[in-house]
């Protein structure tokens, strides 16, 4: 069993959903970003979604846009993101690590080279926002060949006719985008998550996690209760934005606040 399967099986045994946390690689700088990853693990996250920054993140709201720009300004590249992923895996052997982002930096890096490297490092899966099933030949099929899960985004616009297409090549787990919108903006109603979860589960046996617009321990708990897990991104990234300093003097405090917030999220999910 891979790390993703093990993680969902363990959470299920414990009678709770999983907690996924998104942070951007290299935000606010390369060194602090590594510490933030450790803080997210220490706080009790089950799955790490590590953002590969892109200059034009079309599905992201202001928080993650700003986060990507900070990281790029700090000199992060895809090569450095992979190096951070490698170092992370050496420190944490068990926790699933998902790389999330947009296709262009991967395409420019060289898709096969990227996949080989990611697989060798111990990355578990990919979420690529701008690669729908219609473009599966680009990365999804080669990723599965390389032994990486290709995690699909399902959205409120994915109707019954569309779902089988979206889920045909899905692997690892399914990421339900609970709002029609960009990251970190509005929040979904519980009833709509419940309904979507049932629709998705009628097509796939994969675990389904819920994300976009989840900002509090309570909301994380509710989403984890209505599906197999919750993902929180913008609310964590906001802690970075609110604790910046030019000389980095506030960054230790930032890391501590993130660990505490993730701890609260984990409690919220554990109570689900």
């Amino acid at each position: 069993m891979g790390r993703i399967e093990t993680t969902f099986a363990r959470a299920k045994e414990q009678g709770r959903g999983t907690l996924g946390v998104f942070v951007t690689a290299g935000d606010p700088d390369l060194e602090t970003s590594g510490k933030i990853l450790d803080a997210v693990v220490a706080g009790g996250a089950d799955i790490i979604e590590f953002g590969m920054p892109f200059s034009d993140p079309m599905a992201d709201g202001p928080a993650i846009q700003a986060s990507s720009l900070r990281a790029l300004k700090g000199g992060v590249t895809l090569e450095k993101t992979l190096a951070m992923a490698k170092a992370f895996r050496e420190r944490h052997a068990e926790i699933p690590l998902i790389l999330m982002g947009y296709y262009n930096p991967i395409y420019i890096y060289g898709s096969q080279k990227f996949l080989d490297k990611a697989a060798a490092i111990g990355v578990d899966g990919l979420i690529i926002v701008d690669l729908p099933p219609e473009e599966d030949a680009e990365l999804c099929l080669p990723a599965k060949q390389a032994g990486l899960s290709f995690i699909r985004l399902v959205t409120p616009t994915s109707d019954e006719a569309r779902l089988p297409t979206v889920l045909a090549e899905a692997s690892g787990f399914v990421y339900y985008v609970s709002i029609t919108g960009i990251t970190g903006t509005k929040s979904a109603a519980g009833a709509s998550i419940d309904d979507a979860y049932k629709r998705i589960k009628s097509v796939t046996d994969l675990p389904v996690v819920t994300g976009f617009g989840i900002r509090t321990p309570m909301a994380a708990g509710e989403a984890a209760n209505l599906s197999d897990g919750a993902v929180v991104g913008s609310a964590v990234v906001d802690i970075i934005a609110n604790n910046l300093s030019d000389d980095g003097s506030t960054h230790d405090e930032m890391v501590q606040k993130i660990a505490a917030f993730v701890g609260d999220l984990a409690k919220g999910v554990a109570a689900s």
């Binding site: 926002v129 399902v154 919108g181």
Partner: peptide, 18 residues
């Protein structure tokens, strides 16, 4: 598939695909 040689295609978020 909307391709002009290697160019074109449909590289958008799933929300927009339907």
């Amino acid at each position: 598939a909307g391709r002009f040689g290697i160019h074109g295609g449909r590289f958008v978020a799933e929300t927009l695909m339907p």
